[in-house]
Write a protein that binds this DNA or RNA. Structure first.
Length: 497
RNA sequence: CGGGGUGUGGCUCAGUUUGGUAGAGCGCACGGUUCGGGACCGUGAGGUCGGCGGUUCAAAUCCGCCCACCCCGACCA
């Protein structure tokens, strides 16, 4: 008994209640989403994880096109002096840039290799592409008739982080970055807000992850932005996770790269800019929103395999009657993303556990007993519930409806979780009390005087930061919980990833 | 960079205190019995014990130096 228990534990991933961060790492590796690379701080995205990214990318790419954007590609090497042009931008990224200083290798005399020729001017590996893109926009934009420019690129970027975690923070990651140029501030702000709304829709409708939308405080905004909008999600361990950002950059980069245009009334003005991005961090947010102690839980709309069919038939005589029905079902469900796991070398129990670990939303089990009863057994990944569908039914319609139900159910569950973990806090004592223990404490809505000084103090004393500022019609003024100064509205605080 | 720790088959680790033929579990391969919730039995492959040097008849174990990685303190999609 004890031996059996220990053996099972070795196969299971670490339960969330025991160690949430180990659970996450276990899950990512065991579900074969990603693996550590020989270069510290970098990760290998394995086929299961990359399939998820491809599905996200395809959905987002379609939404970008619908909103008038085109894809392009800019180089990953950027002249060092470009970064220095915009004061805040350089301050924000200088410390974490990877820098290329040499080309070529030569023997080092000890059997290894060493860099050979030093470059005349070092190059940085893009931490983001505003600078090189605005350099190019400067050459492309002459008049208002060249505007707007609405470009997106899918790319990798490098930020030399000291503390890394798979998907959430790695030294190289994949993302998309939109960079737009406009003739007026209003148009640019509208663009930034439109893309924020695209991100909100993607997070909620595809990932089934509810997000708060709004903008960042001065301390939290992007280096070089006038205003940073964001979508902010809540993880199961009650921390905030920034899942996407959209920036109104004003004329900061146009000034830095001297990008002016001739206006309709024959004046000259600097061009207005936006940039917006989401990254492979979305995969981390997705995992932390829905998955459980058995492994990954995927929303059907993003799952590569939406349904797996497990035939239960060991003996030849059972296979002879079960497999034709399984093949028939697979054909009916082909357009939905179905996979048949008829591998004779593993047991049904093993298959159940394996597909649950990988997050397949629905599993159909068909054995002799089902056939005799005239039904097929259906197991839902989100709830673990098993039910049956009559064999005569329109399987595709039933399964499709179930998948929609799972998608909606995941979202509803996450919305309820967020509601349970969001509270209004009206005194600093209560605020500190709620954040008294290690780990996440959910979203705290409190009045704040809007100063960076107070925000810094709160962060130092409690570990929480302003995650998002949301303006609404029914905002009620109050007083800052720390200084007592007037506050126009509550803002949302949390400990963050 | 400051403090703490660990390096032993693919993975998790025991063995080091007290030197004496390198081990376990998982995984892997093969064979058989199994298969409605991670099957079992048997057989087998796989390790310069992080590196270099020293002490010793003998070093995973003791000594010295070096290297690597992990954890904790300031920023970040």
């Amino acid at each position: 008994m004890i031996m059996a228990q220990q053996k099972r534990d070795e196969k299971a991933i670490c339960p969330r209640a025991e160690d949430y961060s180990r659970w996450y790492t276990d899950l990512v590796q065991r579900a074969e989403l990603a693996d550590y690379s020989p270069v510290p701080g970098c990760m290998v995205i394995r086929p299961n994880g990359y399939a998820l990214w491809e599905n996200m990318r395809d959905a987002l790419d379609g939404m970008f096109r619908e909103t008038g954007h085109e894809n392009a590609y800019f180089p990953m090497f950027i002249p060092v002096e470009f970064l220095a042009r915009e004061a805040e931008h350089v301050e924000g990224f200088a410390m974490e840039c990877g820098v290329v200083t040499h080309s070529g290798l030569e023997p080092d005399g000890e059997g290894g290799l060493k860099p050979k020729g030093q470059l005349d001017a070092p190059l940085i590996l893009r931490p983001t592409s505003e600078t090189i893109i605005w350099h190019m926009y400067g050459q492309w934009i002459q008049s208002y008739r060249d505007l707007p420019i609405l470009i997106n690129q899918w790319a990798n970027v490098v930020r030399w982080e000291m503390r890394t975690r798979l998907f959430l923070r790695t030294r190289e990651f994949l993302w998309q970055e939109g960079h737009t140029a406009h003739a007026t501030a209003d148009e640019a702000v509208t663009e930034a807000e439109t893309m924020l709304e695209v991100y909100r829709r993607f997070a909620e409708e595809w990932m089934a992850v509810p997000v708060l939308t709004g903008y960042k405080s001065e301390a939290e905004k992007f280096a070089g932005a006038v205003r940073t909008y964001c979508i902010e999600a809540l993880t199961q361990d009650k921390r905030a996770i920034q899942a996407g950002t959209s920036h109104y950059l004003g004329q900061n980069f146009a000034r830095a790269f001297d990008v002016t245009f001739q206006t309709e009334d024959n004046q000259r003005d600097y061009v207005y800019a936006t940039s917006w991005g989401v990254s492979t961090r979305l995969i981390g947010a997705l995992i932390m929103a829905h998955s459980d102690d058995r492994g990954l839980v995927l929303p059907p709309k993003l799952a590569r395999t939406k349904v797996v069919i497990v035939p239960i038939a060991r003996k030849d005589e059972d296979r002879a009657v079960v497999m034709p029905v399984v093949e028939q079902m697979a054909a009916e469900l082909k357009h939905l993303g179905v996979k048949v796991d008829a591998d004779p070398r593993t047991s049904p129990g093993f298959k159940y556990a394996e597909h649950e670990l990988r997050g397949v939303p629905l599993r159909l089990e068909l054995g002799r007993r089902d056939l005799e009863a005239g039904h097929v057994t259906v197991a839902r990944r989100d709830s673990g519930e098993k039910s049956t569908l009559p064999l005569g039914a329109d399987l595709a319609t039933c399964v499709s409806a179930l998948l929609d139900e799972v998608q909606a159910g995941l979202f509803a569950r996450a919305v309820a979780f967020r509601a349970e973990n969001t509270r209004d806090v009206d005194s600093y004592d209560e605020f500190r009390d709620v954040l008294g223990e290690e780990g996440g404490a959910g979203f705290l809505r409190a009045h704040w005087d809007g100063t960076t000084e107070t925000e810094k103090r709160i962060q130092e004393e409690t570990g929480a930061t302003v995650r998002v500022i949301t303006e609404a019609e029914d905002d009620e003024p109050g007083t800052c919980i720390v200084t007592g100064a007037p506050s126009a509205r509550r803002v949302t605080f949390a400990r963050a990833y």
